[in-house]
Simulated assay, not measured.
Amino acid sequence: MTDMNLFDLFLKAGFLVKCVILILIFFSIVSWAIIMQRWRVLVSATRESVTFEDKFWSGIELSRLYQESLTRRDNLSGLERIFYSGFKEFARLHRANSRASSSVVKGASRAMRISMNREVEALETHVSFLGTIGSISPYVGLFGTVWGIMNAFVGLGGVKQATLQMIAPGIAEALIATTIGLFTAIPAVIGSNHLTLRVNKIAQRYDNFTEEFIAILHRQAFAGDSPK
């Protein structure tokens, strides 16, 4: 047994334990794929938010910024999508009834909130599944271990005198399921927590921008100005 590696233990394991291990390996591959893909998406979303905020607060006219967004309306995301939705609704309502300032601002605010919720929902894609993998993997591994140990002891039912050499291989084969379960769960839990934190930070940035933009639209609407 001293020369036996994990691969040898896997080959000697029972059918059900092998299935459990393969499922856990699949979960591990999926979780790492989600972590890397979501990480790239969130880093990109943060970078795009900073870039758009710098442009928004640079003193550029809102109508000009809107026209630039309009030319790329099918490829917008993040803060620019929120801005586009809010300004578009504000301009439409303002043209329809410029005297109903309160309704104009409320309509623009509602459009921005809807857009923001959709953007945050897109950022959260698969993150909850990552948390699920982290939660269930140890139990899946434990199930494989318990089943393997049970079979190891059942196999000794007809033996008059059991020795450690007879029991140890079956227990070792079963314990790799728990090991792989933990190996799968720990990165998934860490990744889920970290990604959730980044999503929350980006969502807070979106919310802050929305409130600030609503305040700007509110001043314009009640000042009687057309969108600028």
Rank of each mutant, 00 (worst) to 15 (best):
L65K: 02
P187L: 01
S109F: 00
N193Q: 07
T178Q: 04
N97A: 05
T145H: 13
E48C: 03
S98C: 01
Q161K: 06
L142P: 05
R113P: 02
S226L: 13
S31N: 03
S49T: 13
E119V: 10
I186G: 02
L130G: 02
V105I: 09
K160H: 10
V154K: 05
A174M: 05
M1Y: 05
G181E: 06
I149L: 06
A13I: 04
E89F: 05
R81P: 03
E68D: 12
A185P: 00
R113E: 15
S85H: 09
T71L: 14
F27R: 01
V43T: 05
Q161C: 01
R38F: 05
I25N: 01
V159L: 00
A172L: 01
F10L: 13
E53R: 02
E119P: 11
S49C: 06
G141E: 10
Q220G: 11
V17P: 10
L16Y: 15
G107C: 05
M36K: 08
L156N: 00
A162V: 12
L62H: 10
F222K: 08
F222Q: 07
S31E: 06
S192H: 13
R47Y: 04
A174Y: 03
S103G: 14
F222T: 14
V189K: 02
A215F: 15
Q220Y: 09
A162S: 04
M150T: 07
S192I: 03
V120R: 00
I82A: 05
S49E: 04
R205S: 14
N97I: 09
N193R: 09
S98G: 00
I133A: 04
I23A: 15
G78Q: 06
N200E: 14
P227G: 10
R73N: 13
S63G: 05
S226K: 14
Y139L: 11
S69M: 09
V146A: 02
M116K: 11
R64L: 14
S102M: 08
M1N: 10
E53K: 09
D3V: 02
P187A: 00
G191T: 08
D3G: 08
I114M: 02
S128D: 13
V104E: 00
F87D: 00
L24D: 08
R219I: 13
G134D: 05
D8T: 07
F209D: 01
T163M: 11
